[in-house]
Design a protein around this nucleic acid. Sequence first.
DNA 1: TTTTGATGGATTGTATCCAATCTTAGTTTT
DNA 2: AAAACTAAGATTGGATACAATCCATCAAAA
Lengths: 214, 214
Amino acid sequence: MKQSIDFTTLQEKVTATIREAIFTQTFKPGERLIQDELAAKLGVSRMPIREALRCLEREGLVEVLPHKGAQVIGISKEDIEELYYLRSFLEGVTVQKSMNFLTSGDREELQHLVEKMDQDIRNNNLDLFVTHNQEFHTLLQKGCNWKKVKMLNKQFIEGYPAHVPSLIPHSMQVSNEEHKAMLEALDQKDPVKLRQLVEHHIMRAGEKLTQLIE
Amino acid sequence: MKQSIDFTTLQEKVTATIREAIFTQTFKPGERLIQDELAAKLGVSRMPIREALRCLEREGLVEVLPHKGAQVIGISKEDIEELYYLRSFLEGVTVQKSMNFLTSGDREELQHLVEKMDQDIRNNNLDLFVTHNQEFHTLLQKGCNWKKVKMLNKQFIEGYPAHVPSLIPHSMQVSNEEHKAMLEALDQKDPVKLRQLVEHHIMRAGEKLTQLIE
DNA sequence: TTTTGATGGATTGTATCCAATCTTAGTTTT
DNA sequence: AAAACTAAGATTGGATACAATCCATCAAAA
């Protein structure tokens, strides 16, 4: 059952819609996004479209050129390598800085999420796994007071279909085992080890993904 | 002599103006930026203002909340530490990947820029030094085919007053000596060493800056 | 006294219209 | 035939007008 999220602004709704369309290849890489067409298709004026395109530009999904308009950015194998390399570093830094500020409540919540993910695997529920996985990663970063890096992590996740990694066979099991290792590092109060685990976790996913693409 | 740059779009002009005002503390951290006021002050409509605010949001200079508007982001000592830490890593990666694709022409151009900076120091010309320094760093990254990381580097430079580091006494001399060391690493065709030099170069500047602030 | 609720002003969000710019196809010129 | 110019159509940029939302103030009720 899919509950519709009510956005506070039309622009946000439009942004989400276009982003989805890019992820699902409805808009293909290189394709021009004409404001009038989108406006007509979505039943709104061009104004929210324009702002949405700016947001998507920031996320790295489209390119906006002055007086020429927006184009969907293509994603190459090289881009994926880059993305995961950057993500592994950035998220690594974040959790290292975050760890010592996590409460015991956070620790419990993380444990719960891991258990939920185990259940999701048993139920073969991809969507839920992706959600819980994202919650896990976000919570692990909660204690970090560096703002820019957290914003980047968020952007990288938004700017890339979170579902893709889950398409890799058996990746969910491995993934969740690594989550458990992270919890151990947390109990041992070893931020450097936690960081290494996170870095490896993400790099591994990236490598799997690039292998799959070939 | 200051030649006025002609932007292709009003929005770009507005963006530059507001950014400058934030850097010069005309708009202070925490201050609300009201679209109507800005529009009246700059003699344009609210439309280019809105887009400009989105751009500045991406650069991390303002925060835009739905139905509430934009606020100037404050920069704390912690933020500077974060910024330089991230920049040193990101620019380090970029030059490492870039080096082997730099042409001998690029090498010469870099040499020229270093010489120009030496001259700028003798003439005590801060503005020109900043410009040449920026050109040097940009050119050093030219060969890198990773797009996201290059975009981030650009954003970080735009989103932070490039002049600030130059305010540190004698930092220009030290800085340019380090540039020369980079050229050596380039001649030795040692990307890893180049990366380390760049990382150290930026981290040092960041540390100097945070010391100065106290 | 504190809290709740309404009301008006301020500000942002969206729609529509016009102007500026780019693109393309056709025509002319060399 | 190829290159350069021109004009019309398409598309984006910007201005103005109106609607939706927020917020502070004050009044009324608990």
